[in-house]
Design a protein around this nucleic acid. Structure first.
Lengths: 125, 125
DNA sequence: AACGGTATCTGTAGCATACACCTAGTCCGG
DNA sequence: CCGGACTAGGTGTATGCTACAGATACCGTT
């Protein structure tokens, strides 16, 4: 872990709720999800991890897949959300609201501290 | 990973910035940090993980420690923040602000979706 | 002498992530 | 017609955080 790591502090397993959200909006396939995820704020998503995760979520019953031919390129495995997946997404949203609240507490407290310190990065109390 | 997991979606390595924040406020020792962390919103912090993390951060130069006797009980290893640790805390705060923003985008988008769906947990579009 | 609270630490397994790599179909330019 | 680029899905593996289960030891009280 280095200080320059762009993924510092990202929520654990954040890929899953993001995928579920995108599939809640519209069915899609892995390669397309990779691009949509980038737009949602997740840079450098590991393709291998995504495809593995998709199959894991299918086994858990959160998504359902079917092969569909493509106009241009190899066939695609198209995923759609199941009812169970929709419930999971709902649970995730609740958990992430809690996380946001906790981050707020942390940041408020940090700002109070750095105000005391004169708000200079390397300043002592 | 189950849907009931209370740690669902917690930021990765969140323990570290929390500890750095607390030490930024006042020097402290491991056992005391365990209790303060609970008040900060982290339930069930693993003591082993905390002590290991403290020693790791000391090796990285983020904190400095010294043994201090206790009035009642075994001696304590008291930690204080170094200048480098203060810089890390600052970097963490910036990263966590980004994370909060991303969570906001996710949650806004989820709410837009669930509004369309009638906001019932199990409802289809 | 035994117990509960304080305090620090080790061992280990599971799991998510990161990185590297592979296969195969389609399209386009040379 | 051949090679490269793009689309699309996939495997193998190392690493590192996290969780769980303990061990050790000091101290005051009963």
């Amino acid at each position: 872990m280095t200080a320059e790591d762009p993924l510092l502090g990202m929520p654990r397993n954040f890929l899953r709720p993001c995928v579920l959200l995108l599939l809640g909006e519209a069915p899609s396939h892995g390669y397309d999800l990779l691009e949509q995820l980038r737009a949602l704020g997740l840079e450098h998503v590991d393709p291998g991890g995504l495809y593995r995760g998709m199959r894991a979520m299918e086994q858990e019953g959160l998504v359902r897949s079917s092969w569909e031919p493509s106009d241009a390129g190899p066939p695609r495995r198209t995923y759609e959300l199941t009812d169970e997946g929709r419930e999971w997404l709902h649970a995730w949203a609740g958990a992430l609201r809690d996380v946001r609240r906790m981050l707020g507490r942390f940041l408020d407290r940090y700002e109070a501290l750095s105000d005391l310190a004169g708000s200079r990065p390397g300043a002592r109390r």
